[in-house]
Design a protein around this nucleic acid. Structure first.
Lengths: 123, 123
DNA sequence: AGCCCCGGTTACTTCAACGGTATCGGCGCT
DNA sequence: AGCGCCGATACCGTTGAAGTAACCGGGGCT
């Protein structure tokens, strides 16, 4: 068992939504970050990703499974238990996420400043 | 003047549309690649990006200008001339595009293979 | 009986991105 | 006069991702 996920891992105030790049669908990158440290259950993923409705999360997970980025393992227990785990292929995306994060830390403020100054022009 | 752009720089058969990441809007990454070697005119950009309608291209360019990724310079000549050039900020995205391309060359075939095998399951 | 848990699904709606076609203004060329 | 060039813009339609809200089944607990 790995440590619990921080509910504020993806602060709504985090400007990641303004990042000029994306891995897969809107939430794919965050799912990878959540699974980086080990397999997680559906409900466990919903904690840091509480902004994502179950429908969208399950769509995202099924798309990632289809693309071989993660595996879905259902255990025939009660209550039901399903675990999602990154595949080696999924893990190859982690360096890209790291690069994206590093870019954001360095350059995103410039981009946002440019955007704001254009908003001022328009007003 | 830089060398003319290859009309097949973005082959429609190129699986870039299946890439699991994106920089900005759909065409932002390709615009950066087009401007990497120097400023380009609107019509010049339309050659390799002939799959993009002028409307969408101009939207993309204006969004990038707003975000400080490129500059738009209009010369008061006849016929009109407008040049787009990457800013230093825009150039900082090039290493990310390189990383994305390297990932695709190495791993995209695996992803596409996984996707195809799932299609087989569904059929 | 009634409620909770887990891991979703279903139906409906909203919204922005994307795309297609047509058109514009100013000038020069023939 | 008519056409073409350049760099767009206007109008409209399509698409697909995302969001909202409600619900499901099977078992266990009280």
């Amino acid at each position: 068992m790995t440590a619990p996920l921080d509910p504020d891992m993806f602060d709504p105030l985090c400007p990641s939504s303004a990042m000029p790049f994306r891995v897969g669908d809107k939430w794919t990158g965050m799912v990878i970050r959540c699974l980086e440290s080990g397999p997680r259950r559906f409900t466990e993923l919903r904690v840091p990703l509480r902004a994502v409705t179950p429908k969208v999360l399950s769509e995202t997970l099924r798309a990632m499974e289809r693309d071989g980025l993660l595996t879905r393992t259902a255990y025939d227990e009660n209550p039901p238990r399903v675990e999602y785990a990154l595949t080696p292929l999924g893990r190859t995306l982690i360096p890209l996420l790291d690069a994206a994060r590093a870019w954001s830390e360095t350059h995103l403020p410039h981009l946002l400043a440019a955007r704001r100054s254009h908003e001022r022009d328009a007003s």
